[in-house]
Design a protein around this nucleic acid. Structure first.
Length: 199
DNA sequence: CCGCGGATCTTCT
DNA sequence: GAAGATCCGCGGA
């Protein structure tokens, strides 16, 4: 992999995101998160995601309904939802589902591709720090602009593991975490017994 | 290797 | 006023 644009596919269109969050989360594996910042390009391959749903998902911010904070989640798909966690780290999500229906995908780990200069991007808090992503990106369109997601150049689906989500107390056993199998850049390995797959 | 506590602050009750 | 989609460093086995 390199910083050359030829290494990546085209920008994922809005219709890619206008689907159930768990489908979007799965299909984002292998795609590239690309950030053009201050004349430089930062990029990484998405290797770990989690889906967060709507009302029924008590682990999701959207389960509390429409508030100032969750407005972006109810808006059109293909936008960034960035929030501050524990007063320290910013977490990046991509809004899924058709407009009006809440749902998003938390980006949890990247395999460094370009410009990260040795910075770790494994873990949602470290990822945003490495990529220069912060609260100012909240609500930004990721189908055009400085922060975009691009398809793999070849539409090859990597082997995928499915596990419960990390660090939550509600709905802690729902299988909504997706990771590229055996990839060394995932934030945590798949717990024993929770392994599932799709080729 | 595993578990625990602290940092730090926004959001919602 | 409490909890929280995190991370790091410490102590013990």
């Amino acid at each position: 992999m390199s910083c050359s644009l030829a290494s990546w596919g085209s920008i994922l269109p809005r219709r890619f995101y206008a689907r159930p969050a768990e489908r979007v989360a799965r299909d984002l594996l292998g795609a590239f998160l690309v950030h053009h910042l201050d004349g430089t390009t930062l990029a990484g391959r998405i290797v770990e995601t989690e889906a967060y749903l709507g009302r029924e998902d008590r682990a999701a911010h959207a389960s509390r309904g429409l508030t100032d904070r969750t407005r972006v989640l109810f808006g059109p798909p293909g936008h960034a939802y960035v929030y501050l966690i524990y007063g320290i780290y910013d977490c990046l999500n991509l809004v899924a589902e058709p407009e009006g229906a809440p749902g998003c995908v938390l980006i949890r780990a990247l395999e460094p591709v370009c410009g990260l200069d040795g910075r770790q991007a494994s873990g949602p808090g470290k990822l945003t720090r490495a990529m220069g992503i912060s609260l100012r990106h909240n609500g930004q369109d990721v189908t055009g602009g400085p922060l975009v997601v691009r398809a793999p150049q070849r539409r090859q689906v990597p082997p995928i593991d499915v596990t419960p989500r990390i660090g939550i107390t509600h709905c802690a056993d729902w299988p909504l975490r997706f990771l590229v199998r055996n990839n060394p850049y995932v934030s945590r390995a798949a717990p024993a017994g929770s392994r599932a797959s799709r080729g």
